[in-house]
Amino acid sequence: MSLSHYYGQFINLLAAILLLLSFAMLGQRRILSLINLFMAQGAVLCASTVVVALTTGQSHLYWSALITLVLKVFLLPWILHRLIRRLNVKWDVETLINIPTTMLIGIVLVIFSFNLALPISELAGTVTRSLLGIAMACVLLAFLMMITRSKAVPQVIGFLSMENGLFFAATSATYGMPMVVELGIALDVLVGTIILGVFFFQIREKFESLDIRHLEQLKED
Protein backbone atom coordinates (compact mmCIF):
# COMPACT_ATOMS: atom_id res chain seq x y z
CA MET A 1 0.00 0.00 0.00
CA SER A 2 1.61 3.19 -1.15
CA LEU A 3 1.63 6.39 0.81
CA SER A 4 -0.18 8.23 -1.95
CA HIS A 5 -3.13 5.93 -1.50
CA TYR A 6 -3.44 7.15 2.04
CA TYR A 7 -3.17 10.71 0.82
CA GLY A 8 -6.16 10.05 -1.37
CA GLN A 9 -8.12 8.65 1.54
CA PHE A 10 -7.03 11.46 3.78
CA ILE A 11 -8.17 14.10 1.36
CA ASN A 12 -11.48 12.29 1.06
CA LEU A 13 -11.80 12.53 4.81
CA LEU A 14 -11.05 16.24 4.72
CA ALA A 15 -13.61 16.71 1.99
CA ALA A 16 -16.21 14.92 4.09
CA ILE A 17 -15.37 17.13 7.06
CA LEU A 18 -15.74 20.16 4.84
CA LEU A 19 -19.20 18.96 3.87
CA LEU A 20 -20.01 18.21 7.50
CA LEU A 21 -19.02 21.76 8.44
CA SER A 22 -21.17 23.14 5.66
CA PHE A 23 -24.14 21.24 7.07
CA ALA A 24 -23.28 22.34 10.59
CA MET A 25 -23.30 25.95 9.41
CA LEU A 26 -26.64 25.37 7.76
CA GLY A 27 -28.10 24.26 11.07
CA GLN A 28 -26.39 26.74 13.37
CA ARG A 29 -28.34 29.55 14.95
CA ARG A 30 -25.69 31.48 16.85
CA ILE A 31 -23.51 33.93 15.02
CA LEU A 32 -20.52 33.28 17.22
CA SER A 33 -20.57 29.53 16.56
CA LEU A 34 -21.02 30.28 12.90
CA ILE A 35 -17.76 32.20 12.83
CA ASN A 36 -16.00 29.39 14.65
CA LEU A 37 -17.33 26.90 12.12
CA PHE A 38 -16.13 29.12 9.33
CA MET A 39 -12.71 29.18 10.92
CA ALA A 40 -12.70 25.39 11.13
CA GLN A 41 -13.65 25.21 7.49
CA GLY A 42 -10.71 27.43 6.63
CA ALA A 43 -8.40 25.17 8.59
CA VAL A 44 -9.66 22.07 6.81
CA LEU A 45 -9.25 23.82 3.49
CA CYS A 46 -5.69 24.71 4.36
CA ALA A 47 -4.95 21.12 5.40
CA SER A 48 -6.45 19.72 2.21
CA THR A 49 -4.36 22.11 0.10
CA VAL A 50 -1.23 20.95 1.90
CA VAL A 51 -2.16 17.33 1.29
CA VAL A 52 -2.76 17.96 -2.40
CA ALA A 53 0.56 19.75 -2.53
CA LEU A 54 2.30 16.80 -0.89
CA THR A 55 0.70 14.35 -3.28
CA THR A 56 1.42 16.22 -6.45
CA GLY A 57 4.54 18.10 -5.46
CA GLN A 58 3.24 21.37 -6.84
CA SER A 59 5.07 23.92 -4.78
CA HIS A 60 2.80 26.86 -5.47
CA LEU A 61 0.05 25.05 -3.56
CA TYR A 62 2.05 25.55 -0.37
CA TRP A 63 1.77 29.27 -0.95
CA SER A 64 -1.95 29.12 -1.44
CA ALA A 65 -2.24 27.00 1.70
CA LEU A 66 -0.36 29.71 3.55
CA ILE A 67 -2.64 32.40 2.14
CA THR A 68 -5.67 30.35 3.16
CA LEU A 69 -4.30 29.94 6.64
CA VAL A 70 -3.58 33.60 7.15
CA LEU A 71 -6.68 34.89 5.49
CA LYS A 72 -9.39 32.42 6.45
CA VAL A 73 -8.23 31.09 9.76
CA PHE A 74 -6.88 34.30 11.27
CA LEU A 75 -7.66 37.49 9.43
CA LEU A 76 -11.29 37.08 8.35
CA PRO A 77 -12.53 35.49 11.58
CA TRP A 78 -10.74 38.26 13.45
CA ILE A 79 -12.45 40.89 11.32
CA LEU A 80 -15.79 39.17 11.81
CA HIS A 81 -15.31 38.91 15.55
CA ARG A 82 -14.44 42.57 15.70
CA LEU A 83 -17.40 43.38 13.55
CA ILE A 84 -19.95 41.62 15.71
CA ARG A 85 -18.43 43.12 18.84
CA ARG A 86 -18.64 46.57 17.40
CA LEU A 87 -22.13 45.97 16.08
CA ASN A 88 -23.04 44.39 19.40
CA VAL A 89 -24.72 41.37 17.80
CA LYS A 90 -22.44 38.81 19.43
CA TRP A 91 -25.27 36.89 21.04
CA ASP A 92 -27.73 37.28 18.26
CA VAL A 93 -29.80 34.21 17.58
CA GLU A 94 -31.33 33.72 14.23
CA THR A 95 -34.84 32.41 13.80
CA LEU A 96 -34.56 29.68 11.26
CA ILE A 97 -37.19 27.74 9.43
CA ASN A 98 -37.16 24.11 10.49
CA ILE A 99 -33.56 22.92 10.42
CA PRO A 100 -34.27 19.29 9.41
CA THR A 101 -36.23 20.51 6.39
CA THR A 102 -33.37 22.76 5.38
CA MET A 103 -31.02 19.84 5.76
CA LEU A 104 -33.28 17.65 3.67
CA ILE A 105 -33.06 20.21 0.87
CA GLY A 106 -29.31 20.17 1.48
CA ILE A 107 -29.22 16.41 0.99
CA VAL A 108 -31.07 16.75 -2.28
CA LEU A 109 -28.53 19.37 -3.33
CA VAL A 110 -25.68 17.00 -2.48
CA ILE A 111 -27.11 14.23 -4.64
CA PHE A 112 -27.77 16.73 -7.42
CA SER A 113 -24.28 18.17 -7.40
CA PHE A 114 -22.69 14.75 -7.35
CA ASN A 115 -24.57 13.67 -10.38
CA LEU A 116 -23.71 16.94 -12.04
CA ALA A 117 -20.06 16.51 -11.27
CA LEU A 118 -19.92 12.86 -12.30
CA PRO A 119 -19.16 13.35 -16.02
CA ILE A 120 -16.68 16.17 -15.34
CA SER A 121 -14.79 14.29 -12.69
CA GLU A 122 -14.53 11.25 -14.95
CA LEU A 123 -12.71 13.49 -17.42
CA ALA A 124 -10.49 14.96 -14.75
CA GLY A 125 -8.59 11.79 -13.97
CA THR A 126 -6.75 13.22 -11.00
CA VAL A 127 -6.36 11.43 -7.65
CA THR A 128 -9.04 13.55 -6.18
CA ARG A 129 -11.66 13.29 -8.80
CA SER A 130 -14.69 12.48 -6.66
CA LEU A 131 -14.07 15.67 -4.72
CA LEU A 132 -15.50 17.97 -7.33
CA GLY A 133 -18.97 16.90 -6.32
CA ILE A 134 -18.32 17.76 -2.68
CA ALA A 135 -16.89 21.11 -3.65
CA MET A 136 -19.95 21.88 -5.72
CA ALA A 137 -22.20 20.71 -2.90
CA CYS A 138 -20.39 23.06 -0.53
CA VAL A 139 -20.97 25.97 -2.86
CA LEU A 140 -24.67 25.18 -3.20
CA LEU A 141 -25.07 24.62 0.52
CA ALA A 142 -23.48 27.97 1.27
CA PHE A 143 -25.85 29.48 -1.23
CA LEU A 144 -28.75 27.79 0.54
CA MET A 145 -27.49 29.16 3.81
CA MET A 146 -27.46 32.69 2.43
CA ILE A 147 -31.04 32.24 1.26
CA THR A 148 -32.35 31.02 4.60
CA ARG A 149 -30.72 33.74 6.71
CA SER A 150 -32.30 36.99 7.56
CA LYS A 151 -29.44 38.67 9.41
CA ALA A 152 -26.63 40.38 7.59
CA VAL A 153 -23.56 38.86 9.24
CA PRO A 154 -24.55 35.20 8.65
CA GLN A 155 -25.13 36.08 5.03
CA VAL A 156 -21.61 37.35 4.70
CA ILE A 157 -20.34 34.18 6.31
CA GLY A 158 -22.38 32.24 3.78
CA PHE A 159 -20.75 34.22 1.02
CA LEU A 160 -17.29 33.51 2.38
CA SER A 161 -18.09 29.85 2.80
CA MET A 162 -19.18 29.75 -0.82
CA GLU A 163 -15.75 31.02 -1.79
CA ASN A 164 -14.29 28.19 0.31
CA GLY A 165 -16.18 25.71 -1.79
CA LEU A 166 -14.90 27.25 -4.99
CA PHE A 167 -11.37 27.24 -3.71
CA PHE A 168 -11.66 23.60 -2.79
CA ALA A 169 -12.95 22.80 -6.26
CA ALA A 170 -9.97 24.60 -7.76
CA THR A 171 -7.38 22.75 -5.68
CA SER A 172 -8.94 19.34 -5.94
CA ALA A 173 -9.85 19.29 -9.60
CA THR A 174 -7.09 21.28 -11.25
CA TYR A 175 -4.44 21.47 -8.54
CA GLY A 176 -5.04 25.12 -7.95
CA MET A 177 -5.33 28.20 -10.04
CA PRO A 178 -2.42 30.31 -11.18
CA MET A 179 -0.93 32.29 -8.34
CA VAL A 180 -2.01 35.62 -9.73
CA VAL A 181 -5.65 34.59 -9.86
CA GLU A 182 -5.49 33.19 -6.38
CA LEU A 183 -3.99 36.32 -4.94
CA GLY A 184 -6.57 38.36 -6.75
CA ILE A 185 -9.42 36.33 -5.30
CA ALA A 186 -7.95 36.51 -1.83
CA LEU A 187 -7.72 40.25 -2.10
CA ASP A 188 -11.28 40.41 -3.43
CA VAL A 189 -12.63 38.43 -0.52
CA LEU A 190 -10.79 40.61 1.94
CA VAL A 191 -11.93 43.83 0.36
CA GLY A 192 -15.45 42.45 -0.01
CA THR A 193 -15.63 41.67 3.68
CA ILE A 194 -14.39 45.10 4.63
CA ILE A 195 -16.85 46.81 2.32
CA LEU A 196 -19.70 44.71 3.68
CA GLY A 197 -18.57 45.59 7.20
CA VAL A 198 -18.88 49.28 6.36
CA PHE A 199 -22.21 48.52 4.73
CA PHE A 200 -23.49 46.91 7.95
CA PHE A 201 -22.81 50.04 9.91
CA GLN A 202 -24.78 51.97 7.35
CA ILE A 203 -27.71 49.54 7.54
CA ARG A 204 -27.74 49.68 11.27
CA GLU A 205 -27.64 53.45 11.34
CA LYS A 206 -30.56 53.55 8.97
CA PHE A 207 -32.79 50.84 10.52
CA GLU A 208 -31.28 50.32 13.97
CA SER A 209 -31.14 46.61 13.22
CA LEU A 210 -29.16 44.25 11.09
CA ASP A 211 -32.16 42.36 9.94
CA ILE A 212 -31.95 42.61 6.19
CA ARG A 213 -35.64 42.16 5.81
CA HIS A 214 -35.74 45.87 6.55
CA LEU A 215 -34.19 46.45 3.17
CA GLU A 216 -37.58 45.65 1.73
CA GLN A 217 -38.65 49.09 2.89
CA LEU A 218 -36.33 50.65 0.35
CA LYS A 219 -38.54 49.38 -2.41
CA GLU A 220 -40.71 51.98 -4.07
CA ASP A 221 -44.36 51.15 -3.84
Binding site: N12, A15, A16, L19, L20, F23, P100, M103, L104, G106, I107, V110, I111, F114, S130, G133, I134
Partner: peptide
Protein backbone atom coordinates in the same frame (compact mmCIF):
# COMPACT_ATOMS: atom_id res chain seq x y z
CA UNK B 1 -31.11 11.71 11.42
CA UNK B 2 -30.07 13.83 8.47
CA UNK B 3 -26.41 13.52 9.46
CA UNK B 4 -26.75 9.76 9.51
CA UNK B 5 -28.43 9.76 6.09
CA UNK B 6 -25.65 12.00 4.81
CA UNK B 7 -23.11 9.58 6.16
CA UNK B 8 -24.69 6.88 4.05
CA UNK B 9 -24.68 9.14 1.01
CA UNK B 10 -21.08 10.17 1.51
CA UNK B 11 -20.14 6.53 1.62
CA UNK B 12 -21.93 5.89 -1.64
CA UNK B 13 -20.40 8.93 -3.25
CA UNK B 14 -16.84 8.89 -2.03
CA UNK B 15 -16.02 5.34 -1.12
Amino acid sequence: FMMAVLGMLVHLLLE
